[in-house]
Structure formats: structure tokens, C-alpha cells
Design a protein around this nucleic acid. Structure first.
Lengths: 90, 90
DNA sequence: TTAATAAATCGAAATATATGAATATATCAT
DNA sequence: ATGATATATTCATATATTTCGATTTATTAA
């Protein structure tokens, strides 16, 4: 998840897809990248569980998987909180 | 910060350094990596603001910068929360 | 069935990252 | 000063990632 979100392009994609449901073509228009590059990033974000696909006719709309996002964000928060709590004891 | 934490070795290093203050040599013993490799990771984590150095005689002890860690974790949490909130409106 | 469109995959090139060996630097103890 | 130790840096190499062009696959419309 962290690796998926460590790329600036993918961070922007997550932000954009949190506001709108877009297909690959639409995303390709917004980012100055080729369609395969966008597909590649979508794949990485999807594999990390951050996105979900919705088939709509011949298009595939991507959007944020909020449940999963919250879960992952929470997991990360816990890791960091635990580390910070440990550090307090030193 | 995300890039720094996306590497498994560095995640472990953060966890370890949250519990103990260690120098490069000690870290090199715990991880099966060369001393330069450890220094390299320490540099990346330090640059991201996650670690601080403490000079102690001829050694340099590394430990978690809890203040910075919490700040960064919080920043990330806000980003994800905002995205999830946006998504709720779709 | 066929043409057109959307999206994924493949292959290759460019770039970035991780790693270790060797070296350099800095600090402490003698 | 000198020797020993801790750490950083340099350099080269291996690996991974990003990107695009070309191709393939799948789906819809005619």
C-alpha cells in the first residue's frame, strides 16, 4: 500500500478518483501519460486494494475503495502510533 | 515519507529504532546487510524526517523522531480521510 | 459477422533504487 | 602524533520501476 502510494502520479490519481469515477481514457486525458502507463498505475493501485472497477457498458470506471482505503490507512496509523508509543518509553 | 517507509527493511528499522537507540554497527548486526547499505537506509529515513541522530562519544545513536513521525502520519491520515470523504459524495 | 472503441498486455528503453567492496573521514584512546 | 574504531561516501553492479509504442483482447454498435 505504501509503495503504491509513494508515487506522486498515483497519489494524484487517488485524489482524482476520490472525486470522480473515471475510465482509463479519461484519466489518460488528465495526466500527461500514455494509456498503458495509466493502466499500469491503475493496476498497482488496484492490487494494493485502493481502487475498484465498475463495468459500465464498454467502459470500466475506476473509483476509490473507501472501505479498503480506510482499513489500510488505519493499519498504517496503528503501526506509526505503536512505534511512537514505544519511543516514548526510551 | 511514503517512499521511505515503502521499503520492508526500512519499516523494520523504524520498528527496531522505536524500541532502542542503536548505532550503525549494531543495526548492521541485526540486519543481514552491509554497513554501507544500513547507512544508506538511515540516510533515507533521516531525510524523510523519521529519525534523529544523537552523538554519544564516538558513536551516533539513531532513534525515532516521534514528533515528526506523528506529524507525517497525521498528514497522511488527513489525506486519506479527505479522499474517503470525497468518495462518500459520489 | 464486422468495424470501432476501450483497456490490458507485451517488449524494450530509460530511469531509479538497493547493494556491497573499497575508500575516505572523523573521533576517541593511548 | 598514532592507531583503532565508527560512520559516511564513492563507485560499480544488480535489480526494480516507469514509460511508451505496438499489439492483443474484449465488448459494443452497426
Amino acid at each position: 500500500m505504501l509503495a503504491a502510494l509513494s508515487d506522486p502520479t498515483r497519489q494524484q490519481m487517488v485524489a482524482v478518483l476520490s472525486r470522480e469515477r473515471l475510465n482509463v481514457t479519461q484519466l489518460t486525458e488528465r495526466f500527461s501519460l500514455s494509456q498503458p502507463a495509466i493502466s499500469h498505475h491503475l493496476r498497482i493501485l488496484s492490487t494494493a486494494g485502493l481502487l475498484v472497477q465498475e463495468r459500465q457498458g464498454r467502459e470500466r470506471l475506476y473509483r476509490l475503495d473507501t472501505k479498503c482505503c480506510q482499513g489500510l490507512a488505519d493499519q498504517f496509523r496503528k503501526f506509526m502510533s505503536q512505534c511512537c508509543a514505544n519511543a516514548k518509553c526510551c
